[in-house]
């Protein structure tokens, strides 16, 4: 009797023997017939990773990506049939993947691509009115909590991850500048858009994501950048439907 554990192990390990008890129509060993299943698993999961991480693929080249995907899918098969989110652990895998170590920014590029995909499938939300912040009394503003859209994602990188992403997705994009970048993924309609944040913007948005009031988020931003420009970042959030509610000091 062929158990599914044995079948699975042989599917994921190309050097493993085909389980006995599997045959062709003439009773001969399954051989290449088993390889069809092996190939279906590897090809379909590689395809899912190619679709999810096109910029990582472009950076390493098609052949390198296929080989790398093969190592990843065998060591990290999907844990759910919901393949739309397959690859959550790909960025962490890349951190430890020896042959790609020279591309130090690769894991963060993968994080950005995963964030774009998560944003695409995230819940819909209605933005606040453009004048909702201006309507607050000035003394209430710093205690207010700004609630972010469910499709918002933040990637904080030591590398110019937005510049690298753009240089590999847009024609005639400028070469990435050196230095760290904070990238905000927004989704004003149904298409996620990555935006580079000005200095301090990453600390600010991270604090908002943790549910901290506006004043504390500003303080966190100013720790990173003394010249933090609050109105510029608020304008980015308002322009991209990223704020869904404002609640007063006492509200949760």
């Amino acid at each position: 009797m062929v158990r599914q554990g044995e079948f699975t192990q042989a599917l994921l390990d190309p050097s493993a023997a085909v389980p006995p008890g599997l045959t062709g129509p003439d009773g001969r060993p399954a051989g290449k017939r088993f390889a069809v299943y092996r190939n279906n698993v590897a090809v379909s999961l590689t395809k899912a990773l190619e679709t999810g991480f096109p910029v990582v693929r472009k950076l390493v080249g098609d052949d390198f990506f296929t080989a790398m995907a093969g190592v990843f899918l065998r060591s990290h098969p999907p844990r759910s049939p919901r393949l739309t989110l397959y690859g959550e652990t790909f960025p962490a895998f890349l951190e430890g993947f020896g042959p790609a170590q020279r591309l130090v920014y690769l894991p963060d590029v993968a994080r950005l691509e995963m964030a774009l995909r998560e944003s695409y499938h995230a819940a819909d939300s209605d933005p606040i009115a453009p004048d909702a912040l201006a309507a607050l009394p000035p003394e209430a503003l710093m205690g207010a909590r700004l609630h972010l859209a469910p499709a918002l994602r933040l990637i904080r990188s030591r590398w110019p991850v937005f510049g690298i992403w753009r240089a590999n997705t847009a024609a005639a994009a400028p070469k990435p500048a050196a230095g760290p970048e904070d990238v905000l993924v927004v989704r004003p309609g149904y298409d996620p858009v990555p935006l580079p944040l000005p200095p301090g913007g990453g600390g600010f948005v991270a604090a908002l994501m943790h549910g901290r009031p506006l004043g504390e988020a500003v303080a966190a931003a100013e720790e990173e950048c003394q010249d933090f420009n609050l109105s510029a970042v608020l304008q980015i959030l308002l322009d991209h439907a990223a704020l869904v509610d404002v609640t007063g000091e006492d509200a949760p």
Binding site: F7, T8, L11, L12, Y37, V41, S44, P77, P81
Partner: peptide
């Protein structure tokens, strides 16, 4: 068909006896 073993989803429609 089957496609999951333990927590591994194999993304193929695998055969049954």
């Amino acid at each position: 068909a089957w496609s999951t073993h333990d927590t591994h989803f194999l993304n193929d429609l695998l055969p049954l006896p």
